[in-house]
Design a protein around this nucleic acid. Structure first.
Length: 283
DNA sequence: ACACGACCCTGTTCGC
DNA sequence: TGCGAACAGGGTCGTG
C-alpha cells in the first residue's frame, strides 16, 4: 500500500500504542525480509522505551531510549496490525500469529504490534538516532512534499533539463520523497499534465499548479486514512477510504471526472508500471 | 551522469 | 473448473 499517506496513517495509528511505552517482548518469526534483519534485533529492542514515532518519506522511524532508531519500510505488501489494549481501548488486529507475520512487538501498555508482509519487499534496520538522517536509506531522499523545502520553485529546479517523462521524475525519490504509483497518477490528473510529458518541458506556470496538486492529494489522502488497496488495512484493520476518491488510478475506461471534460481514462505502461490518465484534459 | 530494464517474492485476478 | 500468464503499493542494481 505504502506511499506517503499510508505510512503516515500507520504512524498515527502506532503512536498511541507505542510512544512512551516499553517493548516488553520482541519476536522475529522470519529474519529474511528484503534484507536480513539487523543483528540481534530482538535483544536490541527488548526492554527499550519508545520515545517517538516519526516518518521520513515512506520510512517509519521509531526512536528508542537506547539511542537507537528502528527504521521500517513496508515495501509493496507490508502492513502493521495492532491488537490488544491501547489507552483503555481494545484493538482487534490479529492477536495470534498468521501467515507472513514476520515481527511481533509487545508493548507495556498492552498493545501487540504485528508486521505482516507477504511479498517480503519490506525491511527493518537499527541505527544510532543521532545522525539517522545519514542512514543509507534516507541520505539521498528529496524533500518531503508536505514540508517547507518543497515548493513550485524547488520542483522547477528539480525538473530542469530532465529528459524523462514526468511520471518517472515524480517517482524518483531523489527528486521528491514519498510519492508512489497511485499518487503520481492522481496529482498529474489534477494538474492536467500528461504522464508522458518530458519533465524538463513543463512550463513554470504549470509547475505552479502541479506542486499544490501534489500537496493537496497527499493531504486529502492522509485525512481519509490512506487508500489501502486490496488486502491492505490500516492498523485498526479498517480499509482506508481514499481509494473511493481516486479520479484516475485503476479506473481505465471510466469517464474523466474533470468538469466539462468528455475524455475516457486510459492505462498505459511506463517503465514497466501502469499510469492512468485522461488523454483529453492532460497534456 | 543519466535513463532504462531486470529483478527481488508471493498472492490474486484475468483470459483461454 | 483448471491452469498459466499477467499484474500488484516498492527500491536496487547492472547495463548501455
Amino acid at each position: 500500500m505504502p506511499e506517503l499517506p499510508e505510512v503516515e496513517t500507520v504512524r498515527r495509528g502506532l503512536e498511541p500504542a507505542m510512544a512512551g511505552h516499553v517493548i516488553t517482548r520482541a519476536e522475529v518469526r522470519r529474519p529474511d525480509l528484503r534484507w536480513p534483519l539487523p543483528e540481534r534485533m530482538a535483544e536490541r529492542l527488548t526492554g527499550k522505551r519508545v520515545l517517538s514515532l516519526r516518518r521520513r518519506s515512506k520510512y517509519l522511524l521509531t526512536d528508542l531510549d537506547s539511542g537507537e532508531t528502528l527504521l521500517w519500510h513496508l515495501g509493496m505488501s507490508g502492513r502493521v496490525l495492532i491488537s490488544g489494549q491501547v489507552a483503555g481501548q481494545f484493538h482487534h488486529g490479529h492477536p495470534l500469529p498468521e501467515k507472513h507475520d514476520h515481527v511481533v512487538l509487545d508493548l507495556s501498555g498492552g498493545a501487540r504490534i504485528t508486521f505482516n508482509d507477504a511479498r517480503r519487499f519490506g525491511a527493518m534496520d537499527l541505527a544510532p538516532t543521532g545522525g539517522v538522517e545519514t542512514h543509507k536509506w534516507l541520505v539521498g531522499l528529496g524533500p518531503e512534499p508536505l514540508g517547507n523545502a518543497f515548493s513550485d520553485a524547488y520542483l522547477a529546479g528539480a525538473f530542469a533539463g530532465k529528459r524523462t517523462p514526468v511520471k518517472a521524475a515524480l517517482l524518483d525519490q531523489r527528486l521528491i520523497a514519498g510519492l508512489g504509483n497511485i499518487y503520481v497518477s492522481e496529482a498529474l490528473h489534477r494538474a492536467h499534465i500528461s504522464p508522458r510529458r518530458m519533465a524538463g518541458r513543463i512550463g513554470a506556470g504549470r509547475i505552479a499548479v502541479l506542486a499544490p496538486a501534489i500537496r493537496d492529494v497527499l493531504t486529502e489522502a492522509i485525512a481519509a486514512g490512506g487508500s489501502s488497496l486490496r488486502d491492505h488495512r490500516q492498523t485498526s484493520g479498517e480499509l482506508g477510504y481514499f481509494q473511493h476518491a481516486f479520479r484516475v488510478y485503476d479506473r481505465e475506461g471510466h469517464p474523466c471526472p474533470t468538469d466539462g471534460c468528455d475524455g475516457t481514462i486510459r492505462r498505459i505502461v511506463q517503465s514497466g508500471r501502469s499510469s492512468f490518465y485522461c488523454p483529453r484534459c492532460q497534456r
